[in-house]
Amino acid sequence: MSGKTVTFYFSVLSPWVYFGGPRFHEIARDTNATVVYRPIDLLRVFRETGGTPLAAMSPARQAFRARERERWSAWLNMPVNAKPAHHPVDESLAAQLLMAAEDAHGGAVVWPLAQRMLAGVWVHDLDISKEATLAQIAREQGLDADALLALAATPAMRARFNANTTEAMAAGVFGVPSFVVDGDLHFGQDRLDFVERALRAD
């Protein structure tokens, strides 16, 4: 069966990407979908689309989001820290490392590396803005950390990261995870049923 293509816009800072990514990839596998990875600058998206970063939300909204993280953590049996030590941080180098790894090794390496970064933030209290942290994560995935980080730090890779973010907003993205199938935008890890329906539709 020849599957559809889904563009996956995501951030390595988002707990919702951490929760939803594994299930999304199961859906992509089961529907034989091709995933196009687009790591984006989530804080820039918030600034330019009228979103509110977590720290600037009202106490009531912050409390509800914290409770939602607890619920999803229990439901999916995925651990999560209530107050991660390094969130938010600059995610640009981490995102650019994902793109460098994809260029060197293909798309299959992207999600395992990204999920390890996400768990680093939300479970292990790692600072993914630090080169040493990213090198450790890359090595744990069996990758040549030094070579990939050198590529990730280039102006050309930063330009691609910025272009991904601009592309995302042009597609209507205002948060993550977001998925585009047949030009139709789906937002949120709690809407993966709609993503699966779109990927299975004739």
Rank of each mutant, 00 (worst) to 15 (best):
G3H: 01
K4P: 14
T5G: 05
T5Y: 15
Y9Q: 10
V12F: 07
V12M: 05
S14I: 07
S14R: 14
F19I: 13
F19D: 02
G21P: 09
P22Y: 08
P22V: 09
R23Y: 01
R23P: 03
H25D: 00
H25G: 09
A28W: 11
R29F: 04
A33M: 07
A33L: 02
A33T: 02
T34S: 05
V35H: 06
R38Y: 02
R38S: 00
P39N: 03
P39D: 00
P39R: 01
I40K: 09
I40R: 02
R44M: 12
R44Q: 12
R44F: 10
V45E: 05
F46Y: 15
E48M: 12
E48H: 03
T49A: 00
T52D: 00
L54E: 08
A55W: 06
M57G: 08
M57I: 13
S58K: 04
A60E: 08
A60G: 10
A60N: 09
Q62I: 03
A66I: 15
A66V: 04
R67G: 00
R67L: 14
R71P: 13
W72Y: 09
W72I: 00
W75Q: 00
N77C: 01
V80T: 05
N81Q: 15
N81D: 13
K83I: 14
H86P: 06
P88Y: 15
P88H: 15
D90R: 07
D90G: 07
S92P: 12
L93A: 00
L97H: 11
L98P: 01
L98Y: 02
L98A: 09
M99P: 05
A101E: 04
E102H: 04
D103A: 14
W111S: 00
A114Y: 10
A114C: 14
Q115T: 09
A119G: 06
G120S: 00
V121T: 01
H124P: 15
L126T: 00
D127S: 10
I128M: 04
K130I: 13
A132H: 04
T133L: 03
T133P: 07
A135S: 07
I137H: 03
A138D: 01
R139H: 09
R139D: 10
Q141A: 14
Q141V: 14
G142R: 10
L148G: 06
A150G: 05
A150P: 05
L151K: 13
A152L: 12
A159K: 02
F161T: 00
N162D: 01
N164H: 10
N164Q: 09
T165L: 06
T166Y: 10
T166C: 07
A168C: 13
A168M: 03
M169F: 11
M169H: 12
A170P: 06
G175P: 13
V176A: 04
P177Q: 03
V180H: 14
D182E: 13
D182G: 12
F187V: 11
L199K: 10
R200E: 08
A201L: 15
